[in-house]
Design a protein around this nucleic acid. Structure first.
Length: 381
RNA sequence: GCGGAAUUGGUGAAGUGGUUAACACGCCGGAUUGUGGCUCCGGUAUGCAUGGGUUCGAUCCCCAUAUUUCGCC
């Protein structure tokens, strides 16, 4: 079956929604955070550890699995769930983000996108049809349309052409999408432009997808204001009875702000990436456990955190693991960071139930610093 | 005991008679938002063993001392 979204409650003072999504691999509550497992693994973590942190949906990536080990091998293994032994819901990204990160503008044509493999430099060509075909074989619960993800700094003119092409790509992808057990999401683009977000959302919704994503956000050092505007400009045109997914966003304050503006789903590499580089999310903001001040700090990352790392290890020990580059350090921080974000969404859901999300946000910012983007920092100087 | 060689930051080391002493590692920070990140970006020797001397000028030349190291008895 396709996923089923049930809207349970709308928060009184904001656009936030409480909901559940039924999938073939379990039912999850929204708003939710989805950890990223690009290459069929949430880096360094086992599925059991993910269940322990109450992870629902995880992400994987069409582009990476297409290259290695190949979608046919995964199909032969019985699909992605069986292959990686993760039995919760899986969402696959379409490779659209790699259009942004790997391809140059001149490589993007009406037919599809020319890539150079990041592994061996060989020439690759990905089309909307191919992306959907691969995702079908991967057998994820939710597939994404193949889109172009232009930087927020792209001109209005470029953005408009890009959106129109992405709409044609969405149409083509939908046409070849046959898997009755897999849902398909459309993606809204348009950068910071109000008219383009409206246009992109309206036209995408006409195609009747199983859910809608807001893309092209948080990929270009754009300001927080621009990111929030992109959400505000898109949400009014998305149907209430379908889930809304803000792609690539997972900075704690952005999750709070996103939910308030009507987002149900988030994914982000941040918790696992910064973990491997020694950083922990905390209620006081990010902490760099490599800093010398933690050398003799024999307390947990956060004293009231229920994650495996905080229940069993000290900052001094994790600091040491990071210093000597033992992989357990990044693993423990990944566990903590993912649990931190999932716990944050649990608290958000409770706040929505009680219609006190704005109070929750105020309390959140009492300890969590409002962060500036690099661009804003530069502009200040 | 005799003879030779060496002595540059936390470490391994380049280097030159004349503004800022290369590089690497380490250390100290920072970045990271649909993962081309065990990655990237900064900072880190007011000083070249110590004391004399030569010179306009010495980390670089000379002498002595100390330490290390190699060889011989």
């Amino acid at each position: 079956m396709k996923i089923k979204y049930h809207l349970i409650q709308e928060e009184k003072n904001t656009k936030a929604r409480l909901g559940i999504i039924e999938t073939n691999h379990g039912t999850v509550e929204t708003p939710m955070f989805m950890p990223v497992g690009t290459r069929a693994t949430v880096k360094t973590l086992t599925p059991e550890e993910l269940y322990d942190m109450h992870t629902g949906v995880i992400l994987s990536n069409t582009y990476h699995l297409w290259l290695r080990p190949g979608e046919d091998l995964i199909a032969k293994a019985g699909g992605l769930h069986t292959f990686m032994n993760y039995h919760g819901p899986i969402l696959t990204d379409s490779g659209g983000y790699q259009v942004f990160s790997l391809a140059k503008p001149k490589d993007i044509t009406e037919e599809g996108v020319h890539f150079r493999s990041h592994i061996d430099g060989s020439k690759l060509f990905l089309t909307p049809e191919k992306s959907i075909e691969i995702q079908n074989k991967l057998d994820s619960d939710i597939a994404m349309s193949f889109d172009e993800c232009p930087p927020a700094s792209a001109s209005h003119e470029y953005m408009k052409k890009s959106i129109e092409r992405t709409l044609r790509w969405a149409e083509r992808g939908k046409k070849v999408h046959q898997n009755e057990n897999q849902s398909l999401f459309g993606i809204v683009q348009g950068g910071p432009y109000e008219d383009l977000r409206k246009y992109s959302a309206t036209e995408t919704v006409k195609m009747d997808f199983d859910g809608y994503s807001i893309g092209g956000v948080a990929n270009d050092g754009e300001s927080k204001e621009d990111m929030y505007k992109a959400i505000e400009y898109s949400i009014p045109y998305l149907p209430k009875e379908k889930p809304r997914y803000l792609m690539g966003v997972g900075e704690p304050s952005d999750i709070v702000e996103g939910v308030i503006r009507g987002i149900d789903m988030f994914d982000c590499v941040l918790p696992t990436r910064i973990a491997r580089h020694g950083h922990a999310f905390t209620k006081e903001g990010r902490k760099n456990l490599k800093n010398a001040c933690y050398k003799e700090d024999f307390t947990p990352i956060e004293k009231d955190c229920d994650c495996y790392a905080c229940q069993n290890y000290t900052k001094a020990y994790i600091h040491h693991l990071l210093q000597v580059e033992e992989s357990l350090g990044g693993r423990l921080l990944s566990i903590h960071n993912i649990r931190f974000l999932i716990h944050l969404t649990e608290e958000i859901r409770e706040a929505i139930k009680e219609n006190r999300l704005l109070e929750f946000r105020d309390a959140f910012y009492q300890t969590y610093p409002k962060k500036e983007t690099n661009k804003q920092k530069k502009e200040k100087k």
